[in-house]
Nucleic acid binder design. Structure first.
Lengths: 99, 99
DNA sequence: TTGTAATATGAATAAATGTTCATATAATAA
DNA sequence: TTATTATATGAACATTTATTCATATTACAA
């Protein structure tokens, strides 16, 4: 097994996990994982307020967990990369697996 | 891709990620991942105060991310299971990989 | 018993943060 | 232009939480 990573890496890991550790953001990640979606579609599917979803989308954007593009008046979000998928799968497996 | 999991599962995922998203706890997980260690060994390796390490170990215990046993006056901690290893690896890969 | 080493814990504080509310911006339609 | 829809944002509040300090507990040695 590896030694404790350098502080710089630990801090980045902490940041990523912090961004992932919120129920609203987790739901958003699942919503856009299925296929890319507009903000209003995400709002419906997640069941949170437009303001809250928009706020959390900015946090996901800053952390590079989602990509986005504008299309007319809409903004379409999608998952950033495959690591986010793997993260969701690992965490899901852990919490749904009976000991 | 899967739909958004039920709230109960999302909440458990949030809890697990919350526990993982702290630099002190991340360092502790790395320390005991190499091999099982006593609290005082963890304190030295992590470089945090005894009190802080002990507090964070209780949080890791409650979340079942570490196992422990008593040996004389010492308490020996180890990683709980393979999912924790995978979580560390996925997050490490994400933050160390150049885009 | 007394002393010491290892670990745990309660209180207190400072900082971070999720959510709501109100409002602003941008693009399109009429 | 005005109106409407989609999205973003700033302020404010309440709650959570990481850390420190002091102290308690536990096990063993002398």
């Amino acid at each position: 097994m590896n030694p404790i990573p350098a502080d710089e890496i630990i801090d980045k890991m902490e940041d990523l996990l912090n961004v992932a550790s919120d129920s609203t953001r987790l739901k958003i990640l699942y919503a856009v994982r299925e296929k890319e979606k507009s903000v209003s579609e995400i709002v419906k599917e997640v069941g949170a307020s437009q303001s809250l979803v928009s706020h959390q989308l900015q946090i996901l954007r800053k952390a590079d967990l989602v990509n986005y593009r504008k299309e007319g008046t809409s903004v379409i979000y999608s998952l950033a990369d495959e690591h986010v998928n793997m993260l969701l799968d690992v965490v899901y497996s852990h919490v749904t697996e009976a000991i």
